Simulated scan of single mutants.
Amino acid sequence: MPHKHLITLALLAATGVAQAAQTIDVYRDPNCGCCKQWIGHLRDNGLTVNDHVEPNMSAVKQRLGVAPRLASCHTGVIEGKFVEGHVPAEQIKLLAKRDDLKGIAVPGMPMGSPGMEMGDHKDAYQVIGVTAEDKEEVVASY
């Protein structure tokens, strides 16, 4: 009977059920409440989060190549790619499959985006992908 468990584990791994959680490093200002809510959203959606309190967010964004027009309050890094702002977890998970993108961003702080929930009010917003050549494209609209 012990072989039955090995077969079950092999089947789970083959179907992707036993995938390891993706890890994202999040850099945020120490006084930001919405950043903490966004981190909660990521964790609730299966991502492992390393939370870094950073007093100089401008330097972090500049180091990672986040254009000022794409800026928001916090910045993540997953598999060497930047995640700027209130990006939904589903888009972060898809980023790993996009070799053509060096990062994604939700500019500003749109109401209703993950971490910015305020009752029923929801602003329309886009997730912007950035290529290695710094070209921008809309990868999702909400």
Rank of each mutant, 00 (worst) to 15 (best):
M1T: 15
M1E: 10
P2N: 08
H5N: 07
H5Y: 11
L6Y: 00
L9N: 13
L11Y: 02
A13V: 09
T15H: 10
G16W: 04
A18Q: 04
Q19F: 05
A21E: 15
Q22G: 12
Q22S: 15
T23V: 12
I24V: 15
V26S: 15
V26Y: 06
P30R: 09
N31D: 14
N31K: 14
G33R: 02
C34N: 05
C35W: 08
K36C: 06
K36I: 13
K36T: 15
Q37A: 11
I39M: 08
G40K: 08
R43N: 11
D44N: 15
D44T: 01
L47F: 04
L47C: 08
L47K: 06
V49I: 15
D51L: 07
P55C: 04
N56D: 15
M57N: 06
S58V: 12
S58K: 14
A59Y: 13
V60P: 09
V60L: 03
K61M: 04
A67Y: 06
A67T: 03
A67F: 04
L70M: 12
L70Y: 12
A71R: 15
S72A: 10
C73D: 04
C73I: 07
C73T: 14
H74E: 07
T75N: 08
G76K: 03
G76P: 09
V77D: 11
I78R: 10
E79P: 00
G80V: 15
K81E: 13
V83K: 12
E84M: 08
V87H: 01
P88D: 04
P88K: 00
A89H: 05
A89G: 11
E90V: 11
E90W: 04
Q91M: 13
I92S: 03
K93Y: 01
K93V: 14
L95T: 13
L95Q: 06
L95W: 01
A96V: 14
K97L: 06
R98A: 14
D100S: 08
L101N: 03
G103P: 13
A105Q: 03
P107Q: 03
G108P: 01
M109I: 01
P110D: 04
M111R: 02
G112H: 00
G112F: 00
S113Y: 02
P114S: 05
P114A: 02
G115P: 02
M116I: 09
M116Q: 05
D120L: 10
H121V: 09
K122F: 00
D123A: 12
D123K: 05
A124R: 00
Y125G: 01
Y125E: 01
I128R: 02
I128W: 06
G129K: 06
A132C: 04
E136H: 07
E137A: 05
V138Q: 02
V139G: 08
V139W: 06
S141R: 08
S141Y: 00
Y142R: 10
